[in-house]
Design a binder for these strands. Structure first.
Lengths: 207, 207, 207, 207
DNA sequence: GGTTAAACGAGACGGTACGTCTAGTCTTCGG
DNA sequence: CCGAAGACTAGACGTACCGTCTCGTTTAACC
């Protein structure tokens, strides 16, 4: 709060233009030239900003990408609509992620940030906190509620269940062994909720 | 086979010592100093091998890591024992991966290779072909057989199911949001086979 | 002129310390270790300067040596004293070159630059323009004046005559077949002005 | 002589084809691609010879060039014709060098060898002994004889005089500041024998 | 005709320097 | 104080040759 409450800061104020230009430049470079093209030098050059300015506000390439992710896909990933059914709500959550990865710059951005996170625990923590955790939390709440009201088995391992819904999406993004199809999200939800076993009792019911 | 069948190759034979030293050096550097420490120069220096030799046989740092993975964890990850039950066999497969990631150098190696794969499609393809696909195939065969004999629902999406078993393991390796616990593998298998739904019919049975 | 007249240049100014350190390092390496020792890496290391800085200002090892030559021997080779006699003035010019080659670092420097010039026309041109031509020009002017006032034969080929005074000095530097003795300069001048012929008319006179 | 006098050597005899191919390759590379192109690897490749064979017979690139010089220009530089006059014989000697440098591969070869000689005393010695000294000796003998018979001043410094005839040719080859013209040789001889002084007694005579 | 000896071809190897690149830092000027 | 410009240190990149080596292959001279 202090930053807005006090008297206007001394000196030249930070340039919002520079901030946006850097984030746009990073996203643009990534989309057009791949990961290799996104260097701090290239970002500064494309944003028409000096390197010092970039380093002043972002300690690492990874941090630029993190902010670019919020900048580029932040609004595109508001809370998806809920229709009330557990399966529908879960599929909406997972499906939003699938579409973001497939249709927006969020896919390459997240892939690149995950790569950077393997070398920088700071990036890893920020990625988890600012991107992964919010989505997992929404999903976990749905599952927790369902357990609480008896709709799901009481011994459900909710974190593992969340992984079984989201991890396949990240896995396909990072390994590319299979496409991020539209049907993926409902399939994941159905198979997890109903199980794969043949002798099931709920024919179609709850979904 | 062909490589040994013909007459002995002309010229000085390739040094097996150099090959092993490079792969050991790469693994050692990764484990001790993290990803940052694994540069081509450091590998060559630690292996007491010239840079030219490294570049002669491995075009990229990523390729060195790929071979190091095979070199380091190859024997440690033979086919896990099968006990005949579907759940047990699946849990054995997944559990072997969990233990490899947690207890051997395979964890950091795979994490690093995944990162490299985001910038190099060649590494991505090799990782998929030489590491991911064999394990997925074993798991997929188990599921396919189960579907064929009626033990699993006929509309099972096997690739998605395999993802729901393996992807969580990779996800925790790469994001570190949760531990790779011993109980993870059976939990994943149980939740996928039986489903999370509360009104289940198979009380304990098939697992 | 323009470079100092305008407003002070933007950005960090070029480090004069780095420039001098590089030129000193090059000369020092050459004198102590011979040509082999003067690599760009060794120069940078000895000057405590990064390789990038060296390459930023000098495209080639040869260019470093050229500047080192000016740096090391520049002041040592101001215009030698003139006593008014043609023979004396010419001997002073040639003798200054002999002494510079024999007593200062200019000898190894020029020898090395000549070697580099055989592979790089750019170095060859710079060597000619910045080192050879000024000295030749001074000598040629003396000869031209003497021809004009009738002291030398009107059909004198001045460029060839200049070569006959200077080239022996370079020749001995580069081939080492004979020493750069103190008496060399007056001998060259005497033999050229008076000729070798026995039936001479001017017994001793004009020299 | 011992090498041919004894019984034929055991083992496979040295391949004359390889020797010639190497020397031709070196000359060809030098002429076509300049000094940069003449590497030991390129020589071996162009000569269709293994590197080991090259190194077996020539310790250094410079030594290959020395032999190439003899191989390429050896026959072209036999003793030039003598017409009996001192000036004519000297001009023939110097002129042969001028033409060899200008019209054959000897020019680039000598320039390159001189460059190599600056870094390798062994090459310098061989160049002097096998190329420079024979030509200087022939010239020096002419001058010595002339001094002995009283045709030249008794205080003539013959080595310096030889330099004043030959060094300008090398100088122009190495520095390129003036062309190696046809008239250069007679001019050098005339200016040295007659001197540049205007008050000469021998109007045209002896030349 | 088999043995021996040396030259040769092929090519992997440990080195060294190359020239380029990127990351970050530092120094100055101008707004 | 912020931002631009740009010189700086540090060090990895991938390439090119170097000169050495370890083989297998060829070509003679000898026995």
């Amino acid at each position: 709060m202090g930053e807005t409450g006090g008297p206007r800061a001394r000196g030249r104020p930070r340039s919002e233009r520079a901030r946006a230009a850097v984030l746009d430049a990073a996203t643009g470079l990534l989309v057009s030239g791949g990961v290799q093209a996104v260097t701090m030098e290239a970002i500064a050059a494309r944003a028409r900003v000096s390197k010092s300015t970039v380093y002043k506000w972002w300690p690492t390439r990874g941090h630029v990408m993190l902010d670019s992710l919020a900048h580029a896909a932040g609004h595109a990933l508001a809370a998806p609509a809920r229709d009330g059914s557990l399966a529908g709500d879960l599929a909406a959550e997972v499906g939003a992620l699938v579409r973001a990865f497939r249709d927006t710059a969020a896919g390459p951005l997240v892939a690149d940030i995950v790569a950077a996170a393997q070398a920088d625990p700071d990036v890893r923590a920020a990625l988890d906190e600012r991107w992964v955790r919010p989505r997992r939390a929404a999903c976990a709440r749905l599952l927790d509620d369902a357990v609480a009201r008896g709709a799901l088995r009481p011994d459900t391992d909710v974190p593992a269940a969340v992984d079984q819904l989201f991890a396949p999406v990240y896995h396909r993004l990072l390994f590319g062994h299979a496409a991020l199809a539209d049907g993926l999200a409902p399939t994941l939800v159905r198979q997890l909720l109903d199980g794969l076993g043949a002798g099931r009792c709920r024919p179609d019911g709850d979904r």
